[in-house]
């Protein structure tokens, strides 16, 4: 038994799906237990060991003034901070609020708006503190998480993917749904990570892993127009789990003008 890492798992505005990916590593959990001291992971155990921590996995986005303070504390307590999932790396689906006026909708949704203390934007962790590594995805790929943990354990630099989802489609022999079925697909501008799950089932990629390193979103929008996709639907395609990621945000705004 070699080095052990003292790990904390934090939750901000999120659905818990990414944290669950950690528990979902069934086949590896016993082996992981030899290397990780899970010191703080409320989703899994109410036993809490106080910091500092070697590694903090942070799920969720910052949406309240209290969380904006709490994330600073997480940074102080942690040697390494890894943001996990689309909420933590891009603001998540809740970043749809960034396109609306919070003062307008809060009274519509809540009977007592005066109790609601929220920020007008949902923002990624890196906008608040220094993040050492980002693992994108909605949810993250548990094997990418495992790979990151292995790399940190053994002092390697984690090797994040930097390829389109298309690369995965072609390697796996998945026939292109955009070309062969005319289905709008975000794969050409999206980071790979899911194993091209949706194209394997005749669906276009939803962009869960966010923009890849040089996303030519306007060229892809031109492809969608050629397929006959309406401007309003192009906006919707770019506004899902990574609506707040800069490239997708800009592209959806560009189509709001035409719409």
């Amino acid at each position: 038994m070699g080095k052990r890492l003292k790990v904390a798992v934090w939750k901000f505005a999120s659905c818990d799906g990414c944290q669950l990916s950690l528990l979902d590593l069934e086949d590896h959990l016993l082996a992981l237990a030899d290397h990780l001291d899970i010191a703080y992971f409320l989703e899994a155990s109410s036993a809490v060991t106080p910091g500092p921590y070697d590694l903090s996995l942070v799920e969720g986005s910052i949406t309240t003034p209290a969380d904006a303070k709490r994330i600073k504390r997480v940074r102080q307590l942690s040697k390494l901070v890894v943001a996990i999932g689309a909420c933590a790396t891009a603001g998540g689906i809740q970043a749809l609020r960034n396109f609306a006026d919070i003062k307008e909708y809060i009274p519509v949704v809540y009977a007592h708006p005066e109790y609601i203390k929220t920020l007008d934007q949902s923002t990624p962790i890196a906008q608040h503190i220094k993040v050492d590594l980002e693992l994108p995805g909605c949810p993250i790929n548990k094997y990418q998480l495992l790979e990151a943990v292995k790399a940190l354990l053994h002092g390697r630099r984690p090797r994040p993917a930097s390829e389109s989802v298309c690369t995965t489609c072609k390697r796996q022999g998945i026939i292109c749904v955009l070309v062969a079925e005319g289905v709008p697909c975000l794969g050409p501008v999206t980071e790979t990570g899911c194993g091209a799950l949706c194209p394997a089932y005749h669906r276009g990629c939803y962009g869960c892993f966010g923009p890849k390193e040089n996303p030519n979103t306007s060229a892809l929008a031109a492809c969608f127009r050629r397929l006959g996709v309406a401007e309003a639907d192009i906006i919707r395609l770019f506004r899902t789990f990574n609506a707040g990621a800069e490239a997708f945000r800009q592209e959806s705004l560009a189509h709001e003008k035409n719409h």
């Binding site: 050409p188 030519n216 892809l220």
Partner: peptide, 30 residues
């Protein structure tokens, strides 16, 4: 370049393109 998505599909489907990269995987114990 304004139209290209850098998606790589053209080279991936080309029957003559032969480029490859190497990927390594270790177990947890290294």
């Amino acid at each position: 370049a304004a139209r290209c998505l850098s998606c790589g599909n053209c080279a991936l489907v080309c029957p003559t393109c032969f480029c490859f990269s190497m990927a390594e995987e270790t177990d947890l114990e290294n």
